[in-house]
C-alpha cells in the first residue's frame, strides 16, 4: 500500500462527496445549501489540485486540468455568494442561490470526471 496514493485518493474522493453534498437539494432554496460545505469543498479541491502538481503522465495532466475546472467553478460560486450578500446586499434570493448551486453543479461534473479517471487509472494498474 502506498501512503501517498491513499492521501491522493482521499482528497479526490472527499472533493467529490463534499461537492455533491452541497449540490443536492432544491436549486433555489438557501436552506438546502450550507456555506460551510461550499467552503470545505473549495479547500479540499484546492488541496487536491496541489497534490496533482508535477505529475508527468497523460492521466496526471487530465486530472490536473479537471481539478482546475473544479476550482474555477467553486471560486465563482463563492464570489457570487460574497458579492450578493456583502457587496450588492440583495441577500440569498432564489435567483442568486440557483446561480451558486448551478455553478457547483458544473464543478461536480468536473469532479466526477476526476473520479472516473482515477478509477480507470487504478483499474489499469491492477491489471498489470
Amino acid at each position: 500500500m502506498n501512503m501517498s496514493k491513499v492521501v491522493f485518493g482521499f482528497f479526490v474522493l472527499l472533493a467529490v462527496t463534499l461537492n455533491f453534498g452541497f449540490f443536492i437539494g432544491d436549486i433555489d432554496n438557501p436552506q438546502h445549501h450550507d456555506v460551510y460545505e461550499l467552503f470545505a469543498a473549495l479547500v479540499v479541491s484546492l488541496i487536491a489540485t496541489v497534490l496533482k502538481f508535477g505529475e508527468r503522465s497523460q492521466m496526471g495532466a487530465i486530472l490536473l486540468a479537471s481539478s482546475l475546472v473544479v476550482n474555477l467553478h467553486l471560486l465563482a460560486a463563492a464570489v457570487v455568494w460574497a458579492v450578493a450578500v456583502h457587496v450588492m446586499e440583495v441577500g440569498l434570493t432564489p435567483r442568486v442561490m440557483a446561480s451558486i448551486v448551478s455553478l457547483s453543479g458544473g464543478a461536480l461534473l468536473a469532479n466526477l470526471v476526476s473520479l472516473v479517471l482515477l478509477t480507470l487509472d487504478t483499474a489499469g494498474l491492477s491489471r498489470k
Binding site: 496541489v50 497534490l51 502538481f53 508535477g54 505529475e55 508527468r56
Partner: peptide, 12 residues
C-alpha cells in the same frame, strides 16, 4: 515539474 512537485507540501 520539479518545481511544482517540490512546492506541493508548502502549498498544501
Amino acid at each position: 515539474f520539479l518545481f511544482l512537485r517540490r512546492m506541493r507540501m508548502p502549498l498544501v
